[in-house]
């Protein structure tokens, strides 16, 4: 039992070090849109990613992208332009908002999976 727990801890450690291709690819996307060069400031891109701390009308637009993107309207985009943003800046912050929400969902799911597998180690290890 103790051995199996240690083995699992080791396996987890190894997974953390040898990051999978997909984990690296996801990390690269987030790093690029948040930290790389862009038309919108890094602070604005980060706020859109976090869906937090944005003044109107951007708060509404970005909130809709994060929570129900089908509700975005032409008026939301027009209002963002009228507030002084270029189309490139809008493109960037909408992309950041979409990635941010998908990232939060992914992280929540992985945390849930972690605690589920800690509770029970019956999970089949080998793929079909």
């Amino acid at each position: 039992m103790a051995y199996s727990n240690r083995l699992q801890a080791l396996l987890r450690l190894e997974q953390g070090h040898g990051m999978s291709d997909i984990a690296q690819a996801r990390k690269a996307v987030v790093a690029r849109v948040l930290e790389g060069d862009g038309s919108a400031s890094r602070a604005l891109r980060r706020a859109a990613f976090d869906n937090a701390g944005l003044a109107e009308p951007l708060g509404t637009l970005i909130g809709k992208v994060a929570k129900q993107a089908t509700t975005v309207t032409d008026e939301d985009v027009a209002a963002a332009k009228a507030s002084g943003l270029s189309e490139d800046q809008i493109f960037e912050i909408v992309v950041c908002a979409a990635i941010g929400q998908a990232t939060r969902q992914y992280d929540a799911a992985v945390a849930a999976l972690e605690s589920a597998t800690e509770k029970s180690s019956h999970a089949p290890r080998d793929p079909r």
């Binding site: 929570k67 929400q101 939060r104 969902q105 929540a108 799911a109 849930a112 999976l113 605690s115 589920a116 597998t117 509770k119 029970s120 019956h122 999970a123 089949p124 290890r125 080998d126 793929p127 079909r128």
Partner: peptide, 20 residues
């Protein structure tokens, strides 16, 4: 936008591996 450990336990119990 979120799931809990019970949701994941249900998937594991259906025979899905952690990797899947």
């Amino acid at each position: 936008h979120t799931v809990g450990p019970d949701d994941m336990s249900a998937v594991l119990a259906a025979g899905v591996s952690r990797k899947q």
